[in-house]
Nucleic acid binder design. Structure first.
Length: 259
DNA sequence: ATGTCTCAGGGACTGAGA
């Protein structure tokens, strides 16, 4: 069994004590982190190694940054989305294990897009199109593929606390959802929706307006899996615990299990 | 209430990004 997680930590340096506590408590085999906001030379490698985790990090100062933490060492590490390198460090991929059991994991931090119609929105749509093209090739080489991260897209109205308020807005607009569906159409499943789920499905709550306490959230963090892995997926859940701590990230982790 | 949090720059606070 392998447990795979994704968590946008909104600064790995600020959140490191929470991340270390969470790794000790949940003991996932693989974790994709987003918004590490730390350059590679300042990555907290020793603290994570002390807990038994290897790291593949694509970081920068101030913004963005993604990392893959793993119990087994990463192989075939790839950083950045071809053609979109100027948009910040937003993609890291690696292979774990050997032979037919090898697992390929792609960790993404999709651009936020600011607001529908903005330059950043157009860049977000283009980034998602480039990701689709790159993943199509990745799937031909790695049948056991997991694509996880902060997609900044709520795929459907049931992933939104108030669909009327959010209709057509950033993270919920038709073009963003259409790009997300195209990723699924490559042959990936949304592991959270493989199972009946209890409670609200949100993974992100705005820091403002006491949104978490009022459960005004969106489901924008996802763990997608290729068909051979979907058949072996036994659970996917959201861990709201870290979001309720003092000084939390605005995102909660998502964890999927594969047999 | 554009209502919170993080970071860079510069050395207190402002602006950007989310």
């Amino acid at each position: 069994m392998v447990r795979v997680a994704t968590w946008n930590v909104n600064s790995l340096r600020v959140r490191l004590p929470q991340v270390l506590d969470w790794l000790r408590a949940q003991a996932p085999d693989l974790v994709g982190l987003q918004e590490t906001k730390v350059p590679d030379e300042a990555f907290p490698r020793e603290e994570l190694e002390a807990l038994g985790y290897h790291a593949a990090h694509a970081g920068q100062a101030g913004y963005n940054g993604v990392a893959l933490l793993s119990r087994t060492p990463p192989r075939q590490v790839w950083c950045d989305l071809p053609g979109e390198e100027d948009g910040g460090r937003r993609l890291v991929a690696a292979t774990y294990g050997e032979g037919v059991r090898a697992l390929r994991v792609v960790n993404v931090y999709v651009p936020n897009g600011e607001r529908v119609g903005s330059d950043k929105y157009r860049l977000k749509l283009r980034w998602l199109e480039a990701l689709e093209a790159w993943l199509r090739n990745e799937l031909t080489r790695h049948p056991r593929l997991v694509v996880l991260g902060d997609f900044n897209v709520a795929p459907a109205d049931e992933d939104v606390h108030d669909p009327l308020v959010w209709t057509g807005r950033i993270m919920c607009s038709g073009p963003e959802r259409e790009r997300f569906r195209r990723l699924l159409a490559l042959g990936l499943c949304d592991t959270y929706r493989l199972f009946p789920q209890e409670g609200s499905p949100f993974t992100w709550w705005d820091y403002r307006m006491r949104a978490f306490q009022r459960d005004l959230g969106l489901r924008i963090d996802h763990i997608l899996a290729s068909a051979p892995l979907c058949e072996r997926c036994t659970a996917c859940r959201i861990d709201r615990g870290p979001r309720a701590l003092p000084r939390p990230s605005d995102h909660a982790p998502v964890i999927a299990e594969f047999q």
